[in-house]
Amino acid sequence: MVYSYFPGCTLKNKASDLDLYARKSAEVLGITMEEIEEWQCCGGVYPLGANETAPKLASVRALVAAKEKGQDLLTLCSACHHVLKRVNNDMAENENIRTKANNYMQLEVPYAGETKVVHYLEMLRDVVGFDQLKAKVVNPLKGTKIAAYYGCLLLRPSKVLGFDNPENPKIMEDFIKAIGAEPVIYPYRNECCGGYMAMENKELAKKKSSTVLQSAKENGAECVITACPLCMYNLKVNGGVDDLPVYYFTELLAQALGVK
């Protein structure tokens, strides 16, 4: 299976691990990730105002590029995934935004949300299959108790993202089982880490991320995995629980597949 791939800015820089291990693992799994040429930053946050079209154009360009190649668009970073999926949904369902964006882009064929946006985890679940993944694991992480941290952007709003049950997700837990480890269910796995507030209001970010980590630890986690660079930062820098390492899920995937 060949995907168009949208890495996003952070994965080219601070979160290069997330990207690197994803690519390595994809190779083992028979997935080809073709990076879109000249992609532009998605903006990091989805513009919520009803009359904001311009900030969505970068995402539309990526979506159109994938459409032209006839491929699904693969994402890794939670934020990129969130923005691309929601913009795509707007293009499909919001006539006002679709018309404006198409007028601006001057495409030969107008874009109306045809591209399917897929997160790497969704790809593992729906295309590779967790059972298949399990079969390909060479270094199962036996007995490791891993807490999945979803954060907000992957899950909500569930009606648009359709990622998993927003209040009781299981995709990452199933992933953890597939790589041979033991998932830890804890109540704060879908609560906010503090997000971009880490810049302005560090105290808030500290409060939020430590709630998450402490809850994970209380429930017996030995490490935490995430799909989001910002969550990673908050948990690591602001989480305040030093003996609980945080990994990108792709790193453990690569480790299990023996390509780390």
Binding site: T10, G44, P55, C77, A79, M199, E200, K236, V237
Partner: peptide, 27 residues
């Protein structure tokens, strides 16, 4: 809400681009 000159002191080594971009967009 966020002035350009106020940004540098808020940054640290580890801070991901995502945080900065988001904050710029939000503020």
């Amino acid at each position: 809400h966020l002035k350009d000159e106020a940004v540098p002191p808020l940054l640290d080594e580890e801070m991901p681009q995502q945080a900065i971009v988001s904050a710029y967009r939000k503020f």
